[in-house]
Structures are given as structure tokens and as C-alpha cells.
Design a protein around this nucleic acid. Structure first.
Lengths: 330, 330
DNA sequence: CTGAAAGCGCTTACAG
DNA sequence: CTGAAAGCGCTTACAG
């Protein structure tokens, strides 16, 4: 990489003049400037971000920490964030490591966006966030009131899903997956709010992966009092559950209705195009971009205005009316 | 972030002593060292990578450029690379931007790994790679002999898939997707090598996405001379094709056999667990890790030893014998 | 309009 | 064993 000193030599000026010319400082005489920029271009000059950041304190770099990148939600989000940050003049770099926050701090990026589902955030202690000297926001989760975050109203999402099923006449609604307490609690609240039937076996124990959903429904013991509809707590798990149902010859939605959390293209492409509830990923990316830039500009976060993203229902084909005796699973 | 100068003040020593102590220089008296490391720990000191890299020329950072992150192959690869690079003492950062290589050059990472499918590499000019002052390798593609690359023997993969189908008796084998010339040519070679039947309609025009595969087979006109087996050129497109077949009531593999390129978990989880051919992602990550570290250490690439990764067949349930008259599609 | 100088936080010989 | 000094490539007042 050519440096400003080398350009200065080639142009026969001092290196501070080169610095000014390259920063479009209007004080530089046009002829001088042209000579300098020509040489720079010819040698493919690019400012050394390290040196520049070291003195100016600005790198125009945003670090995004993306845990569990295997989930399609994350890759969709990464693409959206990249585009929006670039539009605002920032470059995005990604880390999938659990050390992403300290790493970006060391790298002195201008801002950090941490995407964490509830699981990955619990595994990080609040100190990690609080010790971050860089403006940092958490996306999709919440640690404590000192750390700015964009939250997803998952409770609202679960309520919307339950409401939708209720509108189709379902009174026995189950939940597949018990690993996310927000969704589990929301489910319980909704059940009691709508005075639906409930039973401990309506909550199917399962963590979060495709396999978890598959195994959960592969061996689920249906009987006359079983749910007529299920909500899956995320996209992968719901797809696994659907596969298990199909293998068992249980028709969705004729015999059982299913709503999956998270709206990603894969859900639309499932065996049965899935009705989903979930945040619009573009909206999350948009909020995150604006929030982090505001935080960088202000240095101190705004007087704690909380940002919430509301999930949205996407109606497709996995929800139907309550099966009659003839069509029910048992 | 606390700096070595501040630590020096707190410890009552010069800052160069602090620098030595923190680098485990054995010349520092144990007592002094302890005092310094205690203070550093207490204040959560971390070396400023920018400053450190600026003078020492080493950052222990590897930049990975991952185009089209939406494909599960890439997220799997990212996770594997992250793990392996960390084991070797490097931190990985990711870029999904088309400007990833210049960006990492500016950032002065120690090495760059570029993952490009044939499509994304064609869109980048060789200059981008050749102007990279940082050790750079291309994964999964090839630009020219000056740029070290780890190549995937896709031709071999397609041959293996064809061989497998031939071993089941298929003589009319089609290819879904014509956007990757390596695979297309390999397919043509294999067809002529095995003296299989051929016809222009055996190659189904389709680009690369799920939708492309779906649409390609949704309206494909089957007749008595149509292929009894298809190879899909990637995982997403093959899944889309499978969906179209199912919707048309065509049973895989009873009526039509299907092999998908790329072995990712999603393929195993498809409606019909897919028989696949493709590189083992762990192996790609392993080769890339070793190659980039060797390149960094040697500064100049090895006397151009080419590295090739061989695809592997994974036998599952989407391939069967040639259907008899009764079971054939038409 | 141009240049000399200080300094960002560190590493690395070199001197003591 | 410890410290003073130079320098990585840049930015930013300041002087001329």
C-alpha cells in the first residue's frame, strides 16, 4: 500500500499537503490537488483505516455480532444491515464469535450491533456490554436499562398467533418449544386471556433446532383431548415439526393447524406454505441502522426511548378450521 | 479503553516496561510484572489492535469475504472457519460486501479468504485480487494462476452423481440449472463418457435460487422420452425442484430420481431426504485455514501447489431404480 | 495556499 | 532488569 509520504515525494510537495488534498480541503490549489489525486489514483491509494482511526477517532466501521448464523433469520438480517449501513456511509463487518464485542472494541469500530436471540444473550454477562467503550446496541433482546436495545415484541407475536387460531375456532392450542421464556409466558398469558383449555402436555418440550422440532412431534401422543393447533417457537423447529407430522400422515391444516414464528422465505417454501408470525426483518435492520448512527452521533444515548418492533402475521396455508370428528388426528 | 501509558502511571513504571510485562517478556522482574498485570486486568486492558498492527505489522485478524450469505453452504462454512481460525490463534471477521477485499486491505488484516461461487467471482475483476497487498486466497473458485486458490472439483462431483444414477440403471439423466458452466460442461462430458442419451431438453434452464428450481420443474413437460433422473446444481434449487415435483404428484424416487449438489443439513431434512454430492464443508474450512496461515507465514505463496477438494456422495432416499412403464411419470 | 510539528497507542531496538 | 527514543501512517491545529 502506498502512503501519503510516498505520494508527497512523487508529487514534490509536503505530506500534509497531500493529506489535505485527499480530504478535499478547499485550501489546496486546484493544480496541486489534481497532481496529487492523479498520483493517488494511479497507485490505487487507500487511506489506512488503522492510522486514520487512531488519530481521528472515526473509522466509519460498524461491527455486527451475529450469533448462531445458521438460522436464516440472521443471514437475511446481515444482508439488510449491510445494505442500509452502506447507504449511510458505513462499512459493516461481522463476527460470529462469542468474543465479538471485545474484538470490535479492540478494533475501535465506531459502533456495535449485537444480535442475540434470548439464548445467546443469557450466555453473555451484562459486563460484556457495559464494558464496551464503543456505542453498542442490542437487537432482539434486552439485558438491562443501561444498554440500549431494540426489542421485538414477541409477546405480541404469540398473542397474534393465538388470536388467529382462535378466530378459526381453535380452543386447544399447543406450543412447540419451551426454551424461550418470553414466548412461553406469552403463550400462557394468551391461553388464560382467551380462556382456552390448557394442560401441561400442550407445551411440547423442545429446544430450538430443526431436529428438536422433528423429534418433539415425531413421538407426540395425540388423543381426543390433544391440541388442534400448534405454534412453533421458531422457523427451523417449526419446519422440523411439520416434517414429523407429514411422516406420520397427519395433514396440515386439515387435521392440525400450525403457525411458525419467524417469517423467512424458507417458511413460505415449506411442504405446506407456513402461516407465520414474526418481525419484518427489513424493519429490524432499519431501526438498528438508525439507532446505532444516532448513538454514534450523540455519544450518549437518547433519554432512553425504548424501541419495539411489532411482529406481523403472514397468512398462508397451514391454518384451517378445527377438524371435525372424522378428520381429527385421533 | 485504558492505555499502557495510564497503566504505567498507576504502576509507577515507564510505559515501555508495561509493554514488556504485557507481552510476557521474561526480562521483567516478576514482582513488577505482577503489579502491572493486576492493574491491567482490573481495568480490563486490551491491546489496541490498530496501534499494534500499525507498528508490528501483525493483527492476528483474518478477513473472510462471503458473498451470497443466504445460501446455507456459506453459513456452515463461516462457522467452521471461525472455529478453526480461533484454534490457530486468529480472529475471524466477515464481510458480505462486494467491497470486502479492498476493505480488508485498508484494515490491514493479516490474511483474506474470499469465498465465491462461480457467479460472484466472475463479477469481480482479477485486478481486485491482484491489487490485494494482503495474503489472499480464493475458496471454491479460480481466477488465474497468480492468485492462490482452493478449488472444488465440481466436475468430479457431477461425474460421481451421474455414475451413481447409471449404477441404478438410468440412461436418461437431466440437469436442472444451466448457470454454472463447470457443472454444465461436466454434465455434458459425463453424458458422452457414459454414452447416455441426450437431448437439449434434458438441461433445464434455471439460475440458482429456490424459486428458479421450483419454476423450472413446475412446468416441465414430461413425455415418454424425458429423463428418469435429474441432478440439481445446488441445494436451494434442488429443494425448489423437489417441491414442484411433489405438487405435481410425482413421486421421488419411485417415478423420478433426484440428486442435489451441496451437502447441507437442509438437504437431509427435505421432504424426501436428498441424496447429494458435494464437498465436505469441514474439509474446505480446514484447507482454507491451513492455506491462509501458510501464506501469511511464507509471505510468498508456495511454488503453486494446487489444492483441490473432492466432492463426496451422500446416499439418502431420493434415488431409486428406473421406473417401469407403470410407475413412470408419463 | 503550503509546510513543520505534535500526537493517536503501540512495538522494538538500544542504552543504561 | 528498566527506561528513553524512534517510528508505524495518518489527522489536526498552527505558523508562515
Amino acid at each position: 500500500m502506498i502512503t501519503i509520504k510516498e505520494i508527497a515525494q512523487l508529487a514534490g510537495v509536503s505530506y500534509s499537503t497531500v493529506a489535505k488534498a485527499l480530504k478535499n480541503n478547499p485550501l489546496v490549489k486546484p493544480a496541486t490537488k489534481k497532481k496529487i489525486t492523479d498520483i493517488a489514483e494511479q497507485h490505487n491509494y487507500r487511506v489506512n483505516i488503522l492510522a486514520s482511526r487512531l488519530v481521528s477517532g472515526e473509522s466509519k466501521l460498524i461491527g455486527v455480532v451475529l450469533r448462531s448464523v445458521n438460522n436464516p433469520v440472521f443471514s437475511n438480517l446481515a444482508l439488510q444491515l449491510n445494505e442500509m449501513l452502506q447507504e449511510r456511509g458505513y462499512q459493516m463487518i461481522l463476527s460470529v464469535s462469542s468474543d465479538g464485542i471485545p474484538l470490535f472494541n479492540q478494533l475501535c469500530v465506531d459502533g456495535i450491533i449485537y444480535w442475540g436471540d434470548s439464548l445467546s444473550v443469557q450466555s453473555l454477562k451484562a459486563e460484556v456490554f457495559e464494558s464496551s467503550r464503543t456505542p453498542t446496541i442490542i437487537l432482539g433482546s434486552y439485558v438491562n436499562e443501561h444498554i440500549p436495545s431494540i426489542q421485538i415484541d414477541r409477546k405480541d407475536g404469540i398473542f397474534k398467533a393465538v388470536e388467529h387460531l382462535v378466530s378459526y375456532g381453535h380452543r386447544r392450542i399447543g406450543l412447540i418449544g419451551d426454551s424461550q421464556s418470553v414466548k412461553l409466558n406469552a403463550y400462557r398469558d394468551a391461553v388464560s386471556c382467551y380462556k382456552l383449555e390448557h394442560s401441561s402436555e400442550f407445551v411440547v418440550q423442545a429446544h430450538a433446532s430443526w431436529e428438536d422440532g422433528y423429534l418433539a412431534l415425531k413421538n407426540y401422543a395425540f388423543h381426543s383431548g390433544s391440541p388442534t393447533a400448534f405454534i412453533g417457537i421458531n422457523n427451523l423447529l417449526t419446519q422440523g415439526a411439520l416434517r414429523a407430522l407429514i411422516e406420520r400422515g397427519i395433514h396440515v391444516p386439515q387435521q392440525l393447524s400450525l403457525i411458525g414464528y419467524d417469517d423467512v422465505p424458507e417458511m413460505e417454501h415449506a411442504d405446506v406454505p407456513m402461516t407465520t408470525v414474526g418481525p419484518v426483518i427489513k424493519e429490524i435492520a432499519q431501526s438498528a441502522t438508525e439507532a446505532i448512527i444516532a448513538l454514534i452521533k450523540n455519544h450518549k444515548p437518547e433519554p432512553e426511548q425504548e424501541i419495539w418492533v411489532k411482529p406481523v402475521m403472514h397468512h398462508r396455508k397451514s391454518v384451517g378450521p378445527v377438524p371435525s370428528g372424522k378428520t381429527s388426528v385421533t
